[in-house]
Every structure is written in structure tokens, then in C-alpha cells.
Amino acid sequence: MKPAADDAAAPIMTAHRARLIGCRGCGRVWPESQELCNRCGTQLVPPDRRCLQAVWAWMAAGIIFYIPANLFPMLRTETFAGLQGNSNATIVGGVIELVRYGNWGVALIVFAASVVVPIGKFVAITWLALAAGRPATVASAHRRLHVFEVVEFIGRWSMIDVFVVAILSALVQLGFVASIHPGPAAASFALSVAFTMLSAQSFDPRLIWRGLPLRNRRDL
């Protein structure tokens, strides 16, 4: 362990190298021959690049739904029963309008939650999926793990937009005076976020470490 700690490039002990297999459900480590986790009953699957297909597929679906989520209106506001006109605000249109009204803070939050985070997630997952299983140093492997953890943590916060829409359309039902309905973009956005989260979940973080022993073993 000592040389490993001293040299970052030195091979470190991984479950794979120890011929163990980790349970994705509870994290218990079993011998590779074990079929089912005795603790939680989850089927033990060895890390496999095949699961990256699911990552790619979910992400593709997420990206596909992200396009209409930005093109269609998010909120449909009816003032005076639609007599005074309907305002159909898309996400970016809403941000621009907020900026025009001087609400920089709110605009920033909406922009971050609706644009920066989803796109950042796409980029991060793509990067992870591309890098998964590729040769890596220990440091880069740690970086990948951090990125993955951040993506998983922050992913759910993208739903803040959907929540806002849901709460607004539930609260602002003043009948004749004003009412807010979710637009088609709200569903698309929710689907997009969900698919992105599924994509992030499909990613097997064990693949991050998979690259290390392969290279190190080859090097050895």
C-alpha cells in the first residue's frame, strides 16, 4: 500500500483486481462467482462497457426532449380569460424577459437550473461515457469520480423548473383574471431531466476504475 500511496501512477487495489465484484445495490463486495447479493438480493453484474449503451441511449432521449423543451412555451399565461392575450414564454424567452425587468437574480437562477445544468450534465456524462474504461491515471480516475458524483447530485435539481411550473399552474388559477397552464415544454423538460438522470444512473462508476488495473496490469 505504501508504494501505491507514494506513487500516483502505481497500481492500486481494485475490486476487479481482487477478483471481487461489488454489489450496485448496497455496495457489499462478493467473490466474482457469486450470482446474487446475499445482503440485498440484487443480481451481481460485473462492470461492463455494455452498460454504456444504456447511458448513451438515455442521454440521447434526454437531448431529444431537451430540444422541444426549449422551443415550446413553458408557461401559458391567460389574463382576463385570454381576452387580453395569452403570453407563451419559452425558457430562454422567460429569462430574457426577467432580465428586461431587471430581475437578474431570478434570471440567473432560472438560467442556471434550466440551461446551464442540463447542458453541463450532457457534457459531463458524454465525457464520462467516452472516458469510461479508457486508460487513466489514478488522479484522472478520481476526477472522473468527482464529476460523476456532482452530476448525480445536481441532476435532480434540474427538476426545479418543472416544480415551479407545477406550483404556479396549481396556485395561479384565478379564473377570469389570470390563470397559468403548463405548456408542452414543461413535459418535455421533465422527460429530458428524467432521461438524463436515468442516463447518469445507468453509468457504472466501477468502469472508472476499470481502466486502471488494465493498464497497470499490462504495464506490470
Binding site: 461492463d48 462497457r49 455494455r50 449503451q53 444504456a54 441511449a57 438515455w58 440521447a60 432521449a61 431529444i64 426532449f65 430540444i67 422541444p68 418535455s188 422527460l191 432521461f195 445507468s202
Partner: peptide, 23 residues
């Protein structure tokens, strides 16, 4: 199993296809 996965296409790909069709 890995070979089979590499040779065939996972069922999961139906999801983006459906998403594309819906969109």
C-alpha cells in the same frame, strides 16, 4: 455476453427512438 452485446443492439436503444418519434 460481451460479444453478444457488441454484436447486437441493446433494447435500451428503443427509448431514444421512441423519444425521437414522439418529438
Amino acid at each position: 455476453a460481451a460479444r453478444a452485446a457488441r454484436a447486437g443492439i441493446s433494447v435500451i436503444w428503443l427509448v431514444p427512438i421512441v423519444a425521437l418519434i414522439v418529438t
